[in-house]
Nucleic acid binder design. Structure first.
Length: 887
RNA sequence: GCGAGGUUAGCUCAGCGGUAGAGUCCUUGGUCGACAUCCAAGUUGUCACAGGUUCAAAUCCUGUACCUCGCACCA
């Protein structure tokens, strides 16, 4: 029979991807639709930066979320996936500033705030949607109508409302405090944005004279001698016998010769350094605390760009590194430097700028998070929000159980300007949700808004609320706030557990009293195949769009899903994507095989009495896969789900079911052909449904050929486990049949037979069911192992002499080839197998002889071990039979 | 310093009390109507190390070594 097939030989992803994405959009498949569960399912996409380009982390985010969302949608939940983008204050401002500098050699101050912001908005309109288009290439099925930008009207309102609320409660306050100052951004940054890196530096021992007693010099140890211009005390431990008497006296700072008090403070560690500490409250976190305790003055010696100011005249205008060298030179000149030795120092760097941050005292806005943090901890402890995998709650707790006030002001222009107003006339200071027209106190018109903007994470923290319309009541109604809040699940990486997850928890609970989401699934960080972080400097980045182009979005997605379980690293090797591309193609070709027979297939399964054993078997196996996949998806084990369907498609459906079907489909019995075609089609529909959440494009493509106008696959029901289809007996029988077939192939291979050499096979078994089934299946054995003829007898019968042979625990297989085969080689094979089987047997035998085992092991285990012993014995007996046949 | 995770086949990883698994790689053999992005057969492991608990340990406990990652400190 000639088969006509105009389907391409390999799956062509690109055309399929665009076509189906457009179709899904056209049919509004991404919009929430009430389903049979009668419940909603909401997922919030971590909003990528508008400056962003899709990287592997995003691709993983997109894959896990889209897989989950498509799954839940098919399960019949009213599913909403909310997309959006983040204004990402610091990085966006930096990107645009750099661009303007490159093109016009102007900085933001040259342009002025208003003009600069106009430029950023312009840039955002032009490039900000790039990442969205890239997400679409990956097939994400979020409801784009919900899409939101953190600087849109509603998020703006949310930020102001929340700010004013907490301001009026006294939780947001302004204070002169020592903060991490990023000299490149010229802004304060939060503790969380500081990364500590080890830097090689020096330890300096410097002489400080004592005014009251010229004979005494104090040796002060420091890593930063240049900051001595900001010293306002020298501190020793009050219990330190060496220096006790000096407390209350006066030290003279080198170079500037300024006089400062010598104080006692418990913070000073007698063991460390020289036991004498220079105190610089303006530029060191610990010293700031010492200063507060001892009412020391603060001297700021740095400009906003990190250079030294006029309070350090000898090094004014220098950068810290140059200043240090200069101070060192002067100290040597004055013979005040006692010692300089190498020292590894961990120094704070700005996360965005990668520049050394300088502790500096300045007026900033802080949010007191003590109570909110406590509530957020409690919510997880009491199970209102659960982490998957659970271990990540430790990271969450570590941050929230030791809350520090959060510095929320940034000296930037791009972001939410702090809604606090100052009256020039009467010194009033107030927070307002809407632009005020007059001073709240004196009704004067001469007031101004605080120039700072809020930390990006302040608006991100309100994201679960603002994306659903809060605080605008009309918008909340339209977007279904009451139905979709709390979200069901948040999916993100562990690096932003405290930046984002913790803050959403705190802020969401503060506003609504309810957690913003019930689950947090923390996925892995994508690394290169050697486990290194992907970075520009290493050049080891893998561009997801390249991969999509090369292998298709489905292959890319399957790879990421298969790598996503409860692991924290995902080491990605492009070869793996290639492997899964092959899988996608395998599926395609399986479909190509089935497709010519679809005409014959009926829509309904035939009555059970017409099911062939193969049919019962494949339906039972398919049912198992459905069970595994449902269970795995529900707990975010995308790896288990992927593995289950992968092995089903390859090892069950293609290798056996399709192969066994050929004889029927190319045979003469028309009724059998119809049944088999129907079964193949039925299974294929289930396979593509099961796979659809992971590989949406090819499955939708194949479905379009199978569906007979049932609509799109993505709107179909997911495959559920069905107890009726369980069939342990059939599975056991098929497995034995597979073992026999494999055994025959094995024998063929061991004697180097060509595939086209036909053979005669003698099978000996006492398993009557198998004997009957194998006999009935003789035409299939011809196809599968080129068996021309053979016999099936019970083990009481005599074995053929000198045959290539093999034994399982339930059958012996002989292929008489006397004269052709190398007997000694066959004897070797069998002997080796005997050794192996003996070893297995002695293991179980030891258990059975162990009285403690028999007394303590559970019944089920004992039965199992007994069975194993019997199987091993049976196999041994068979092997010995075979060995005897060589005599 | 505190905390979390890891160490299983050459590579990438799953398994987390009852006979060591997958993919990939490798070896051998295969062209005829699904697929060479394929098929068949095969090889591959002191489950880091040392103790302990248990009838039974890759799996639980303790310790050691090495690797990752957080957090803190750093005069």
């Amino acid at each position: 029979m000639e088969i006509e097939n105009n389907l391409p030989k390999t799956f062509e992803p690109e055309a399929s991807q665009d076509r189906w994405y457009d179709e899904w959009m056209k049919q509004k498949c991404f919009k929430p639709r009430p389903g049979k569960q009668g419940k909603t399912f909401t997922v919030l996409m971590p909003p990528p930066n508008v400056t962003g380009k899709l990287h592997m982390g995003h691709a993983l985010d997109a894959t896990t979320q889209d897989t989950l969302v498509r799954y839940k949608r098919m399960k019949g939940f009213e599913t909403l996936w909310i997309p959006g983008t983040d204004h990402a204050g610091i990085s966006t401002q930096a990107v645009v500033e750099k661009l303007i500098w490159k093109e016009e050699k102007k900085n933001r101050h040259d342009l002025g705030r208003e003009e600069f912001l106009k430029r950023i908005w312009h840039w955002k309109e032009q490039y900000g949607s790039e990442i969205v288009n890239q997400q679409k290439k990956m097939g994400v099925s979020c409801d784009w109508d919900y899409s939101c930008f953190t600087l849109d009207d509603i998020p703006n309102q949310a930020v102001k409302k929340f700010f004013v609320m907490l301001f009026n409660e006294g939780l947001i306050y302004q204070s002169d405090y020592i903060v991490n100052w990023d000299p490149v951004l010229q802004s304060a940054i939060s503790d969380a944005e500081v990364e500590h890196k080890d830097v090689k530096g020096f330890f300096y021992h410097v002489k400080y004279r004592v005014k009251e007693d010229p004979n005494i010099t104090l040796i002060v140890a420091t890593t930063r001698p240049e900051t001595m211009f900001g010293d306002t005390a020298v501190a020793v431990n009050p219990n330190d016998e060496r220096f006790k008497d000096l407390i209350g006296k006066t030290a003279i700072i080198p170079i500037s010769n300024r006089e400062v008090p010598i104080i006692g403070d418990e913070h000073v560690d007698m063991e460390k350094g020289t036991g004498c500490l220079k105190v610089t409250p303006g530029h060191d976190f610990n010293d700031f605390e010492i200063g507060k305790r001892n009412s020391l003055p603060i001297i700021n010696i740095l400009n906003k760009d990190g250079t030294f100011n006029k309070n350090a005249p000898e090094i004014e205008g220098l950068k810290p590194k140059e200043a240090r060298a200069e101070v060192e030179r002067i100290l040597i000149e004055l013979d005040l430097l006692v010692e300089k030795k190498e020292h590894m120092n961990s120094v704070g760097h700005g996360q965005r700028s990668d520049e050394i941050v300088e502790p500096m005292v300045s007026k900033q806005w802080f949010l007191n998070t003590t109570q909110m943090a406590e509530d957020a901890v409690k919510a997880v402890e009491e199970g209102d929000m659960t982490f998957f995998p659970k271990g990540w709650e430790n990271t969450y707790f570590a941050w929230l159980k030791n809350p520090k006030d959060w510095c929320i002001s940034r000296q930037l222009w791009w972001g939410h300007q702090i809604p606090v107003y100052y009256c020039r006339h009467c010194d009033a200071k107030w927070a307002a949700e809407t632009d005020p027209s007059e001073c709240v106190e004196c009704k004067g018109k001469d007031f101004f808004q605080d120039p700072d903007v809020l930390d990006t994470w302040f608006s991100s923290g309100l994201w679960p609320l603002s994306t659903l319309g809060w605080p605008d009541e009309q918008a909340m109604k339209e977007k279904g706030f009451d139905r979709f809040y709390p979200n069901e699940c948040l999916i993100t990486g562990f690096d932003i557990i405290f930046f984002w997850v913790a803050r959403m928890m705190m802020m969401g609970m503060k506003v609504t009293g309810k957690v913003p989401f019930n689950h947090t699934y923390i996925h892995a960080i994508v690394r290169d195949k050697q486990g290194r972080k992907m970075s520009k400097s290493l050049g080891n980045g893998i561009d997801p769009l390249d991969m999509v182009k090369q292998y298709g979005a489905d292959a890319m997605r399957f790879t990421l899903a298969a790598g996503s379980g409860y692991n924290r690293d995902l080491n990605l090797d492009p070869e793996r994507i290639e492997g899964y591309r092959n899988f996608v193609n395998k599926l395609w070709n399986a479909f190509r095989f089935v497709s010519p027979f679809l005409e014959k297939a009926q829509d309904e399964l035939p009555v059970k009495s017409e099911w062939h054993l193969h049919d019962k078997w494949i339906l039972a196996e398919l049912n198992d896969v459905a069970k595994v996949m449902n269970e795995a998806m529900d707990v975010y084990r995308f790896d288990d789900a992927s593995a289950a369907i992968y092995s089903f498609v390859y090892d069950k459906y293609c290798s056996w079911y399709i192969e066994l079907s050929k004889n029927i489909l190319y045979g003469t019995n028309e009724r059998d052909k119809v049944i088999r075609a129907t079964m193949l089609k039925y299974c294929f529909k289930k396979i593509v449904a099961l796979l659809h959440p992971i590989t949406p494009f090819i499955t939708e493509e194949i479905w379009s050929h199978l569906s007979n106008g049932q609509g799109l696959l993505m709107t179909q029901s997911y495959v559920e486990y069905d107890e009726e289809l369980e069939n342990a007996e059939v599975k056991e029988l098929m497995n034995k049949f597979i073992d026999v077939t494999t055994g025959i192939r094995n024998i063929r291979s061991s004697v180097n037979m060509k595939p086209k050499d036909e053979i005669d096979v003698r099978i000996f078994t006492d398993d009557e069911k198998l004997a009957k089934f194998a006999y009935d299946s003789r035409r299939f054995l011809k196809d599968l192992a080129n068996v021309k003829s053979g016999t099936i007898r019970n083990k009481a019968q005599a074995r053929p002499k000198k045959s290539a042979s093999l034994a399982t625990s339930f059958a012996e297989i002989f292929v008489p080839l006397e004269g052709i085969i190398d007997i000694s080689e066959q004897v070797n094979r069998i002997t080796k197998d005997i050794e192996k089987t003996k070893a297995e047997y002695s293991k179980v035998e030891a258990k059975l002889n162990n009285q403690n085992f028999m007394a303590n092991a559970p019944e089920a285990v004992r039965v199992e071990v007994n069975q194993k012993a019997k199987l091993a014995q049976d196999k041994l007996a068979s092997l010995n039979q075979i060995l005897a046949s060589f005599q």
